[in-house]
Simulated scan of single mutants.
Amino acid sequence: MAEYGYFLSCEEFGPADLVEQARMAEQAGFQSLWISDHYHPWNDAQGQSPFVWSVIGALSEAVSLPIETAVTCPTVRMHPAVVAQAAATSAVMTQGRFRLGVGTGEALNEHILGDAWPPLHIRLEMLEEAIQVMRNLFTGDEVNHHGPHYTVENARLYTVPDEPVPIDISGFGPQATSLAARVGDGFVTMMPEEPMVEQFRKGGGGGKPVSGGTKVCYGQDRSEAVRTVHRLWSNQLLPGEMGQVLPSPRHFEQLEPLITEEMISENTVCGDDVDEHVAALSAFAEAGFDRVYVNQIGPDQRAFFDFYRTKVLPQLQQGSR
């Protein structure tokens, strides 16, 4: 039976709005929260990017739902020893209801300190070493580490949860999926593709949780919802590796003419057709996902949560029994 959660977008909303959305999500019947971890939004129209660890602190007091970053890059902008401290504290504050989702990141967020942006195979090496460093620190023991990418000397986390923070690994292709299967506590991806789930499970993932997410735009006027998605989130339809290698929001804005409203309409659930919303989320459950997260694009958040509370979540929960 799949669990349905809400995906908080740090690129589009400030801290107070995110906390209020989390409260509405819990009241609507969502079972858990994802929250994005960015330094920049994808474009200026999205307009926000609060520090995720501060927001998680507020969320820990505002709601009782499990929380996961989707996803943190613990390799370039922040050293894994620092991410480990942030994650451990988050787990303590949520009484063990925190999972750390990690991935290889995007130049958009990670090159800001002037570091070179490595090719994928190097980023995967860095991620695997970072996970090793963080797991060692989660023990609460003193850690000394001298690896090809990271050095840690006399580091010890004094505030740690009773159980190590689970680390789920994000993957969009076979290499990252293989890494997730080999060393992750779970797998995160954004497409309901059964072959990737099978690769994860057969490659060593076994019965570990697989989580996926999607974006929708609920609204009574479908055309207006399409325009809202086109204005705010055209970037999600850019092909290939552009999402990983472009260095600033203005570069994503320069590519927006490539994405038409027709493409948005064909690839994003827009409007108030209950069956469309149910089908989009059910596709993940049918592909073998354990947790499915949905994000509402645009300002009409309260109406979205009312719609999901009364019409969408009851159907999803009935269908998963």
Rank of each mutant, 00 (worst) to 15 (best):
F7M: 08
L8V: 03
E11S: 10
G14I: 02
L18P: 04
E20D: 15
A22M: 02
A25T: 00
A25R: 10
E26T: 02
Q27E: 15
Q27R: 15
A28P: 09
S32I: 10
S49R: 05
S49I: 01
W53H: 09
V55I: 12
L59D: 11
V63K: 09
V63E: 10
T69L: 05
V71A: 03
T75S: 15
M78K: 12
P80Q: 05
V82K: 14
V83E: 00
A84D: 05
A86Y: 15
A87R: 00
A87N: 02
A88F: 06
A88V: 06
V92T: 00
V92L: 09
Q95F: 08
V102L: 00
V102M: 03
V102K: 00
L108F: 03
H111M: 13
D115Q: 13
A116P: 11
P118S: 04
L120E: 13
I131P: 04
Q132E: 15
V133E: 01
M134W: 00
R135Y: 01
F138D: 02
T139W: 07
N144C: 13
H145Q: 10
H145P: 08
Y150L: 10
Y150T: 04
R156N: 02
Y158F: 14
V160F: 10
D162I: 07
P164T: 06
P166V: 08
D168V: 12
I169F: 11
G171R: 05
P174Y: 07
A176I: 02
T177R: 02
S178R: 15
A180L: 10
R182L: 09
V183G: 11
M190Y: 14
M190P: 11
M191K: 13
M196Y: 13
V197E: 04
F200A: 09
R201D: 05
K202R: 15
G206D: 11
V210T: 04
S211G: 13
G212W: 07
V216Y: 09
Q220K: 15
Q220I: 10
S223I: 11
E224D: 14
V226H: 06
V226N: 11
R227A: 14
R227C: 07
T228K: 11
V229Y: 01
S234T: 14
L238V: 00
P239H: 12
S248I: 03
R250C: 12
R250D: 15
Q254Y: 14
I259M: 05
E261S: 07
V269T: 10
D272Y: 01
V274Y: 01
D275R: 12
S282V: 03
A283P: 00
F284D: 00
E286Y: 08
E286K: 10
A287N: 07
Y293F: 15
N295F: 14
Q296V: 06
D300R: 12
D300Q: 14
R302Q: 14
F304T: 03
L313V: 11
L316K: 06
